[in-house]
Design a protein around this nucleic acid. Structure first.
Length: 270
DNA sequence: TGGCCTTTGAAGGCT
DNA sequence: AGCCTTCAAAGGCCA
């Protein structure tokens, strides 16, 4: 089952048409969450290219898992260099973001039913830490157990959007250039640089993000962004409310003054 | 130790 | 339809 899903997702990407039309507006594509609208025949047959992606360094599964596993239909594919293998603009994308480096798309045991026991970076325990040693469960009520079970459910992270992918790639560069380490400051710089990118350059990241969303959908069909709501502590609303004098972020500022999202900047945000 | 900061975009909910 | 809220990443900072 999972094998089919991964194969389908992989092939879907391998056969995905490149961005069409030069100068195409890089704005996000229409939502892809309507799975029902995708006909089964839209997933092509397994590409022979897939054979190249079986991992040269398969991570052995822990004994307890491997013993229980009846079959091992799929090894964790090494998808590093995936984009360089694909044709079209994505292959020329000069960055390091790929399935290999992007945690939410790395394949591993976190994927339900996946045979390998490598923890999936996109699927993390709610605490983000190793589980505590087990204790006497007989002391627990069923309700408590249910609550705990729910709490221990691994978290599937949201797929990264275009800007997040850009940030992930460019962060190291900015850190090196500016000798900054504080993410808040770095992100401000990256935000400005993002807007300085040409539409063609941004389009690469929008396309990549679109593919990531699509793969995420294939890997976690029932997942919803709503699943992770409330798992981070919400910020206080007061802090989010903008003062009349604070220009806020460029995005908020443009929204407030009705400026063009791509080109216009108000004074304080320059 | 855990939330905040800071960015943009996606998605879900509400009016 | 439009607005609002939350969460994705990152790491220093602070209570």
């Amino acid at each position: 089952m999972y094998k089919d899903t991964v194969y389908s997702a992989f092939n879907l990407l391998m056969h995905y048409p490149p961005p069409s039309g030069a100068g195409q507006h890089p704005q996000p594509q229409p939502p892809l969450h309507n799975k029902a609208s995708q006909p089964a025949h839209s997933v092509p047959q397994l590409s022979p290219l897939y054979e190249h992606f079986s991992s040269p360094h398969p991570t052995p599964a822990p004994a307890d898992i491997s013993q229980k596993q009846v079959h091992r239909p799929l090894q964790t594919p090494d998808l590093s260099g995936f984009y360089s293998l694909t044709s079209g603009s994505m292959g020329q994308l000069p960055h390091t973001v790929s399935w290999f480096t992007h945690p939410s798309l790395m394949l591993g045991s976190g994927v339900p039913g996946h045979p390998a026991a490598i923890p999936h970076p996109a699927i993390v325990p709610p605490s983000g830490k190793q589980e505590l040693q087990p204790y006497d469960r007989s002391l627990k009520t069923q309700a408590e157990s249910k609550v705990e079970k729910e709490a221990k459910k691994p978290t599937i992270k949201k797929p990264l959007n275009a800007f997040m992918l850009y940030m992930k790639e460019m962060r190291a560069k900015v850190i090196a250039e500016c000798t900054l380490k504080e993410s808040a400051a770095i992100n401000q710089i990256l935000g400005r640089r993002w807007h300085a990118l040409s539409r063609e350059e941004q389009a690469k990241y929008y396309e990549l993000a679109r593919k990531e969303r699509q793969l995420h959908m294939q890997l976690y069909p029932g997942w919803s962004a709503r699943d992770n709501y409330g798992k981070k502590k919400r910020r206080s609303r007061e802090k989010h409310q903008e003062s009349s004098t604070d220009p806020g972020s460029p995005k908020k500022c443009r929204a407030r003054f009705g400026l063009n999202q791509q080109t216009d900047w108000c004074g304080p945000c320059r």
